[in-house]
């Protein structure tokens, strides 16, 4: 898929929608409306939009505990997502999943996942399904650099390569495994270097640059779709907030975070790229931000006004029940 102004504008818009969604969710936790925890995606938006801009509606995506951005980039509705974070009946998962399990199966977004590295096998499985059925759907798995330490990473990628499955493994390496810098617990710096063990291409990209992500993923998706097998892409990125709510972040300095926000904000990087090409005027930019802001305000209002789940919901969806569906 070639890069067009339209595509760039879509990525730019989605980055703002993600950024504002996360900031609103954070605000709602302070109001006591969003409970549990929140793993904010701010700073990493270029990865989700750069990947999903290459995907069709019927392509499969599985995510992580930090997946609000993946869901929005794949097309999920922000109002239903916010309602899910509130635990309301109108949420994407009817209030049964919460932040770590947001999913929209109508978009083949098969869910965030609360267990690190747990989506890699299932994404390889959706790719296996496509291969058996003979469709040209591509599966994309997002996971963090911490997941590369898990056995599921090795077991699943080994099978993805063995059977040449149409899957793209996207590692979001934000440098921290919860509270621990990657370098303290991993000898291999770049997760992309691990691709050689499975005889698949491994590429490391600047995950703050949506264009760079888009172009590398375009090649990996084209390879997967045409039967060329899997790829492992490492997007080197940075999270602007802590691991989750209440993270004191003693493992990094405020200066480091401020420097990254100044020099590596993915929104600024894409804005500069588009401005240079006269693809985005300042009026366009204002409009994008205004619209995204309005959407997220509406989402919060929708969530707030939505009803709580009925008590009977506790016992439904444990197993399939023909009566429930009928």
């Amino acid at each position: 898929m070639s890069l067009t102004q339209e595509k760039c504008l879509k990525m730019y818009t989605d980055m703002w929608r993600i950024r504002l969604f996360e900031e609103e969710a954070n605000r709602q936790t302070n109001l006591g409306n969003v409970v549990g925890t929140l793993h904010m995606y701010c700073g990493e938006e270029a990865v989700a939009v750069g990947v999903c801009a290459n995907l069709r509606d019927d392509d499969y995506v599985l995510g992580t505990h930090r997946s609000h951005g993946h869901c929005i980039a794949k097309g999920a509705q922000s109002d239903k997502m916010m309602a899910e974070l509130f635990g309301k009946a109108t949420g994407t998962c009817r209030g049964k999943g919460g932040s770590m399990h947001v999913a929209d199966f109508s978009l083949n977004m098969l869910g965030a996942n609360g267990i690190v590295g747990a989506g890699i096998g299932p994404t390889t499985g959706t790719a296996l399904a496509s291969k058996i059925r003979g469709t040209d759907q591509v599966s994309v798995c997002f996971f963090g650099d911490g997941a590369a330490a898990r056995g599921t990473f090795h077991e699943a990628i080994a099978m993805g390569s063995l059977w040449q499955l149409p899957v793209v493994y996207v590692c979001e390496n934000n440098g921290y495994q919860q509270w621990v810098p990657r370098k303290n617990v991993a000898v291999v710096d770049s997760v992309a270097d691990m691709a050689g063990s499975y005889s698949i291409p491994g590429v490391s990209v600047n995950g703050q640059d949506a264009i760079e992500v888009y172009e590398v993923i375009a090649e990996a998706v084209a390879r997967a779709r045409s039967g060329g097998g899997p790829s492992l892409i490492e997007a080197r990125t940075y999270r602007f907030y802590g691991h989750s709510l209440g993270d004191e972040q003693q493992y990094r300095t405020e200066e480091e975070v401020e420097e990254r926000k100044r020099n590596a904000d993915p929104i600024n990087i894409l804005r500069d790229f588009m401005t240079e090409r006269n693809w985005l005027t300042s009026a366009d930019d204002d409009q994008v931000q205004q619209r995204a802001g309005d959407e997220i305000t509406r989402a919060a209002k929708f969530a707030e006004e939505s009803p709580w789940p009925e008590m009977g919901e506790v016992g439904t969806d444990v197993l399939f029940d023909a009566k429930e569906v009928a």
Binding site: L110, T126, L128, A129, T152, A156, M159
Partner: peptide, 28 residues
């Protein structure tokens, strides 16, 4: 043919793939 997969020794991988394939509508 094409509907049986002899796997490496990787139980977490095998069941993980099964979960994904099942969510995509297959019956592993």
């Amino acid at each position: 043919p094409g509907r049986i997969f002899e796997t490496p020794i990787a139980e977490a991988g095998i069941v993980g793939l099964g979960v994904g394939a099942a969510m995509a509508g297959m019956n592993p």
